[in-house]
Each structure stands twice: as structure tokens, then as C-alpha cells.
Computed example of a mutant assay.
Amino acid sequence: MIIVVVILAGATGALWWPDGFLRVFAGGLLALAAWVARHDVARHTVRQRGVVRFIAVCLLSGYGWLTVGALLGLSGAFAPGHAWRDAALHAITLGFVFSMLFGHAPLILPAVVRERLAYHPSFYVPLAVLHVSLLVRVAGGLSGAFWLRQAGGLASAAALVLFALTLLIGAYRTWRRTVSGVMSSR
């Protein structure tokens, strides 16, 4: 509860005193990253197999990116015009948010579309592409190398397309197994 209050106070206070309160906001994000990394069941489920492990890897890597973004924010990188702003914001929006999206999609998507989704280890490919592309983008943001930021951005877009394709292939595999199961039972 205190962490949420700090984050909200930092975000709200930044309207009046951006430099100071954006650092408070970053401190709240850092505390949140530490709290979830300590208390999330993903620390234990990462030792399992299959989709459970994939989800845990996504969550834990997302917490890592949240930490990176928060640390950059503590250095002042959330301030408009700061040289590291791009790196800080992308660490959070791409690294944290999309890691959470990738990790929760195998659970949420089947519930929404009411179709099972076959897990396959290939789910790690778009996740790896996302993280490598983000490393490139953050390196470009920290060094001021626009071409690295651009390359990282393009690779991040490719990671999202790859993930969508991976989910579609997983749905197709499930459908194919269902169809062949129905045909073989006749």
C-alpha cells in the first residue's frame, strides 16, 4: 500500500515539481520491483517446466526491466529532455509492460477466445528478441547513438510480430490436435 502511495504521490507531484517528484516516482517503481521480485511466486515456478516456466521467466525479466527503468529514473532520466529519457521509458514500457503481456498472454488469450493454446518452447524466441532489441535500444539511448535506438526499435516491432505469430501457431496446433483427435475417434 505504501509503495502505491509513493508512486501516485510521485506522479501527481510531478505536475508541480517535475524533477523532485519524478525521482520519488522512480523510487516507488524501484520499491515495487523489489517487492514483486521478492514476493511473486515466479521465483519458485521458474524451476518448473513448460508454460509455467515461460510465464515465470517473463515476469522475472519484466521486474528486471522495471528495475533498470526505475534506476535510470532516479538519476533524473524521466525528466523531459533528459538524454536518457528514451532508455528509461522504453525499459518500463517495452521491457516491463511487454514482458508482463508476453507472460500473461498464454493464460488470458485462451480465456478470452475460449480456445486452448498449445504451448511450445518457441514462445521463448520472441521474448529473447524483445530483450535483445531492448538492450540495443537502451544502449543507444544511453550512448546517444540514434542508429542503435532505431535498430532496437525495429527489432522490438519484429518481436511483437513474432509473438503474435507464435500465438497464432499455438492456436493452430491446438486446433489441429483437436481435429485429428475427432477424426481418429470416428
Score class of each variant (00 low, 15 high):
Pro106Arg: 01
Gly64Pro: 04
Gly28Asn: 11
Leu72Met: 11
His44Leu: 10
Val112Ser: 12
Leu15Arg: 06
Val68Trp: 10
Leu72Cys: 08
Gly13Trp: 00
Leu74Phe: 03
Ala88Leu: 04
Pro18Met: 13
Val36Thr: 11
Gly13His: 02
Ile55Cys: 15
Trp84Cys: 10
Phe102Tyr: 10
Ala37Ser: 13
Ala77Leu: 13
Val52Arg: 04
Val41Met: 15
Asp40Pro: 11
Gly62Gln: 08
His82Thr: 07
Gly76Trp: 03
Thr67Asp: 10
Arg47Ser: 11
Leu60Ile: 02
His82Tyr: 15
Gly76Arg: 01
Gly13Met: 01
Ser75Cys: 11
Phe21Tyr: 14
Gly81His: 10
Leu66Val: 05
His90Met: 05
Phe54Asn: 05
Leu60Cys: 12
Thr93Arg: 11
Gly62Ile: 02
Trp17Phe: 14
His90Lys: 01
Val112Phe: 14
Val97Ala: 13
Gly76Glu: 02
Val41His: 15
Leu60Gln: 09
Ser61Asp: 13
Arg49Phe: 14
Leu107Thr: 08
Gly73Ser: 07
Val51Lys: 07
Leu59His: 10
Ala79Phe: 14
Ile92Glu: 02
Gly62Cys: 07
Ala87Thr: 00
Ile92Cys: 02
Gly69Met: 06
Pro80Ser: 09
Gly81Thr: 07
Leu101Met: 15
Leu71Tyr: 01
Trp65Gly: 04
Leu71Trp: 05
Ala79Ser: 15
Leu59Arg: 03
Ile55Glu: 15
Ala14Cys: 05
Ile92Leu: 09
Ser75Ala: 15
Asp40Gly: 12
Gly28Cys: 13
Ala83Tyr: 14
Leu29Phe: 13
Arg85Ile: 05
Val41Ile: 13
Leu109Asp: 05
Phe98Ile: 00
Thr67Ser: 14
Leu74Thr: 06
Trp35Ser: 04
Phe96Ser: 00
Val52Leu: 15
Ala31Cys: 11
Cys58Thr: 03
Ala70Asn: 07
Ala111Ser: 12
Val97Trp: 02
Gly50His: 03
Ala34Asp: 09
Leu89Thr: 03
Val97Pro: 06
Ala33His: 02
Asp40Asn: 05
Thr67Asn: 05
Ser61Arg: 01
Gly103Cys: 09
Ala83Thr: 05
Arg38Tyr: 13
Thr67Leu: 09
Trp16Asp: 14
Leu60Val: 04
Arg49Val: 08
Ala26Phe: 09
Ala105Val: 08
Arg85His: 12
Ala88Thr: 00
Ala87Leu: 04
Val52Cys: 14
His44Thr: 08
His39Val: 12
Ala26His: 04
Ala87Lys: 01
His44Tyr: 11
Leu60Trp: 11
Leu74Asp: 05
Val46Asp: 10
Ala111Leu: 07
Arg38Gln: 13
Val52Ser: 11
Gln48Glu: 12
Leu94Met: 09
Leu101Gln: 06
Ala77Lys: 14
Ala88Lys: 00
Leu32Val: 08
Phe96Cys: 02
Ala37Leu: 12
Leu30Pro: 02
Phe102Asp: 09
Ala70Phe: 12
Leu72Phe: 12
Gly27Trp: 07
Phe78Lys: 01
His90Trp: 05
Phe21Ser: 13
Leu94Gly: 00
Ile55Ala: 15
Leu89Val: 02
